[in-house]
Design a protein around this nucleic acid. Structure first.
Length: 493
RNA sequence: GCAGCUGUAGCUCAGUUGGUUAGAGCGUCGGAUUGUGGCUCCGAAGGUCGGUGGUUCGAGUCCACCCAGCUGUACCA
């Protein structure tokens, strides 16, 4: 059935278009972060947006198809491929595939879009940008400590002040110790352990009492929806909650608390020792005030095997509706000793961190960060077209400006002068160049400063007066065009 | 997935106990002003009232189901 119905232009949900200001601000921010990573000796590497699904993670258990959380397609040989959902798994593939060629420990960074087929929400997109740095082939916790310190430096490089952010460190082995202490070690309790970890992860969102409910029978949230809990005994719940509250005044106090809670288990003791070493290293480098041991950090990803970290913003900002917004985590990472070695017959310990670029960007916007100011660019100088058959003359004027390094364009539409002025206004043009037949014969051009003109307009009420005054408009010889425009640009800067 | 809320012009919304031709502001376009962006005034375009079915003499309004969006929650390897 034929129809003359027009196609509806629509952006898929969870995706976003970005305007010039956004693009420029992102570029600026990425440059700042990149400079920090390079200062630490990390080198750039870029991998494709797509990988074979088995390299990214797992197929659904017992089914020959990928997890629904990734965007997937089948190659012409029926192999499943997926858009990358983070930058860590592709790095692991790259490092393993080039294992004999790369210097080890291999220190690299990468930035790019990642994709997740999940329900989008405020601040949650299906395509977003991450900026990662990883060290592959170093088992020492010095590598972890260094990454944490580098993250602190990156936060400051993008304009956050000390106290506006904090890098929190925990250790999966300590969490394992807690699990062992409450009798949840062993494969048969894997599912329940996951439930407990998720509950702990929600501490800052729902508070200790909410976590208590989730660890026990379950929790009824404000929408009336019920979430089934882990079903732990009261004593076990107390142990877990005591663990999350184990943060002391100082790192040493926190470590002592943790030692008391899980020191009796092998894993727990190992984790506490690692945390103590990280604390020492961080302290020795003078980062003790912003890299903190915090037992409430969990991180959702299952592949972490040791230290885990999270960069968190500590300030709150009211949004346009007047509600208080906490940005929370703007990045996270940890040690993943198993991820690269999946591909290899030798151990390949690795640790890394990922910055959520988009989220960090919205936080910087909210506090009007200075590194984002000045990214709202003026448009080009617009050369108006008064006589359509003289386009060559106007292009010559435009080229004259371009040759002098001044952004300029000839109006390419078909409308009259009034509309061309409106166009220039909307383009945020600093000025327009006007040359009708009179000016052409005299070898001159009119140059109208749109910024100064708008300023002058405030004191002019009648349109007749406004037109007659021709505010901020000068007539100069064509030879003086460049110099005059330069003067106008300088006066607007 | 579960729950709550919301669907009327490009956007933000109004629309009375169900009653004639569904409105406003903003935006867009044109004119007042053949060659000057602002302001002001005048005018125009723009609607399957989310969809389908039902109740009714009559539905934007009431009912049922469906769809979409938002918010929370779950999942997020």
């Amino acid at each position: 059935m034929a129809t003359d119905q027009k196609l509806k232009a629509r952006l898929p949900r969870g995706l976003a278009d970005r305007g010039p200001a956004d693009v420029a601000a992102t570029e600026t921010m990425l440059a700042k972060i990149r400079a920090v990573y390079e200062l630490y000796g990390f080198e750039a590497v870029e991998t494709p947006l797509m990988e074979y699904t088995d390299a990214l993670g797992k197929f659904l258990p017992d089914q020959d198809r990928p997890n629904e959380g990734v965007f997937s397609l089948q190659d012409d040989d029926e192999q499943w491929m997926s858009l990358r959902y983070d930058l860590t798994a592709p790095l692991a593939r790259f490092a393993a595939e080039n294992w004999t060629r790369i210097p080890k420990p291999y220190r690299s960074y990468r930035v790019g879009w990642v994709f997740r087929n999940e329900k989008p929400g405020p601040g949650r997109f299906r395509q977003f940008m991450q900026f990662d740095a990883d060290t592959v082939g170093a088992a020492s916790v010095a590598a972890d400590a260094e990454i944490c310190m580098m993250m602190a430096d990156a936060m400051e490089a993008v304009g956050l002040k000390r106290g506006q952010y904090v890098v929190k460190v925990n250790n999966r082995k300590v969490l394992d110790g807690v699990m062992e202490a409450i009798g949840l070690s062993g494969d048969e309790h894997a599912a329940k352990r996951l439930t407990v970890l998720r509950a702990i992860d929600k501490l800052d969102k729902i508070g200790p009492e909410g976590v208590r409910d989730l660890l026990g029978a379950g929790r009824l949230d404000q929408s009336g929806d019920f979430t089934k809990g882990a079903g732990l005994e009261a004593a076990a719940i107390d142990t877990v909650l005591a663990f999350t509250a184990a943060r002391g005044e100082t790192g040493a106090a926190t470590i002592a608390n943790l030692g008391a809670l899980v020191g009796a288990t092998v894993k727990g003791a190992e984790g506490v020792a690692e945390l103590a070493e990280i604390a020492t290293l961080v302290e020795a480098s003078g980062y003790g005030d912003r890299v903190l041991i915090d037992p409430s950090v969990v991180r959702g990803l299952e592949y972490y095997t040791g230290p885990v970290y999270e960069a968190e913003l500590t300030f709150e900002v009211p949004n346009e509706d007047g509600q208080i917004v906490r940005f929370g985590s703007v990045g996270g990472g940890g040690r993943y000793d198993g991820l690269v070695s999946r591909f290899l017959s030798e151990p390949a310990p690795a640790t890394g961190f990922s910055i959520g670029v988009s989220r960090l960007m919205s936080a910087l916007k909210a506090i009007s960060s200075p590194i984002l100011s000045g990214t709202e660019a003026l448009g080009p100088v617009v050369v108006l077209v008064m006589d359509k058959d003289r386009a060559g003359d106007y292009l010559a004027l435009t080229k004259r400006l371009r040759d002098a390094g001044i952004r300029a364009e000839m109006y390419l539409g078909s409308s009259g002068m009034k509309a061309q002025m409106k166009y220039a206004d909307r383009r945020k043009a600093p000025c327009v160049i006007i040359q009708g037949s009179n000016e052409r014969e005299a070898g001159v051009v009119q140059i109208k400063d749109l910024v100064a003109g708008a300023e002058a307009a405030k004191s002019i009420e009648s349109n007749a007066e406004w037109k007659a005054a021709r505010p901020a408009q000068v007539e100069v010889k064509v030879e003086d065009l460049v110099e005059t425009v330069r003067g106008i640009l300088a006066s607007q800067a």
